[in-house]
Structures are given as C-alpha cells and as structure tokens.
C-alpha cells in the first residue's frame, strides 16, 4: 500500500508517496537523501537512528514514515547553521567525542534531548540518559565530556 505523506524535515515540508511499511529512517535516508541518520540494529537498542519528532527524541527505525505525516522531524543535518557548528557538534569535536563517527549523529541528537530534559545533569546522569546509544569506539569517556561541555555552553548562551 502506498500513501502520500508530507513531513516537515529540518524546516522544509517534503511530500512524497511512500510504501506504508517504509520506516521513517528509510524515508529520511532513501527518499530525502539525508544520510546523516544511521541504522545500527534491528531492535531499538543502538540509538544510531535517533532524530527529533515534534521536539522529542525518537528512534526513526521504530516508526513508520507514515506516522510522521503532518509532523516535524529534525535530523543531524539541521544542527550546523550558516557554517557555524551547533554547540553539541563543537563539543564532540573539541573533546574527541567521536572516532569512526557512525554513532555520532544519533548520539548528538540523544544528547540534545538529555540536555533539554536535564539541563544540570551530572556526569553519572548523562551516562544514565545515554543508555540507549551504543558506541564501540570511544569507551564513552569523551562522549560524556562532550555532552557535559555542550550542556555548560548551552546553559551560558
């Protein structure tokens, strides 16, 4: 079954006919060519596909594209504005919070959710809140430092 949907992605409305079973992550990656959102598992465990749906973090591999019809999605591609990195991007760069980079977009989108829900989170609370995002490279130490640094920066500005 096909269905025409309109999804606002990073501020732009996109209308497309999609198969009803298409996952939101495939709509972003295949239909809109926004390949910054990744897929790392089949079981909602790794968090690579994390995006924001109407302002909340969601797993785009566990939603159908048709469920986003009429709603607003924000992906990693929206973070950089006019050539300026978002504080979360800057923090991951400056704290060596990434190595292979594959988990990074999902990790940053989740981290933004954490910072929004728990602005003054301690390092332990940051770790707890990132439980749904797996990284195999960094051992998380510098990811926690990145999120801490971004949270502080965002609180200042």
């Amino acid at each position: 079954m096909e269905q025409t949907i309109t999804v606002t992605v990073n501020g732009t409305a996109h209308t497309a006919e999609v198969e009803q079973r298409m996952l939101l992550v495939h709509f972003l990656r295949e239909t809109l060519n926004l390949t910054g959102t990744h897929i790392g598992c089949d079981t909602s465990t790794c968090g690579c596909c994390t995006v924001h749906l109407d302002g909340e973090t969601v797993l785009s591999c566990s939603l159908l594209a048709v469920q986003a019809d009429g709603r607003a999605v924000r992906t990693v591609e929206s973070l950089e504005q006019n050539g300026e990195l978002h504080p979360i991007q800057k923090a991951f760069h400056e704290n060596h919070g990434l190595q292979c980079g594959f988990c990074t977009p999902g990790m940053m989108m989740s981290a933004l959710g954490v910072i929004e829900q728990h602005p003054g989170a301690s390092d332990d609370e940051i770790r707890e809140a990132l439980e749904g995002n797996l990284c195999r490279c960094t051992g998380y130490q510098n990811i926690v430092a990145s999120v801490r640094s971004a949270a502080d920066e965002m609180a200042r500005s």
């Binding site: 926004l34 390949t35 910054g36 959102t37 990744h38 992906t75 990693v76 591609e77 973070l79 950089e80 990195l85 991007q89 991951f92 760069h93 990434l98 980079g101 594959f102 990074t104 977009p105 940053m108």
Partner: peptide, 11 residues
C-alpha cells in the same frame, strides 16, 4: 570530525 558531526560522513 566536521563531516561526521554534520552528518556528511559517507558510509
């Protein structure tokens, strides 16, 4: 880093 934090990595 820049391409990876902006989602422009190409896997």
């Amino acid at each position: 880093d820049r391409k990876f934090v902006t989602g422009e990595g190409r896997y």
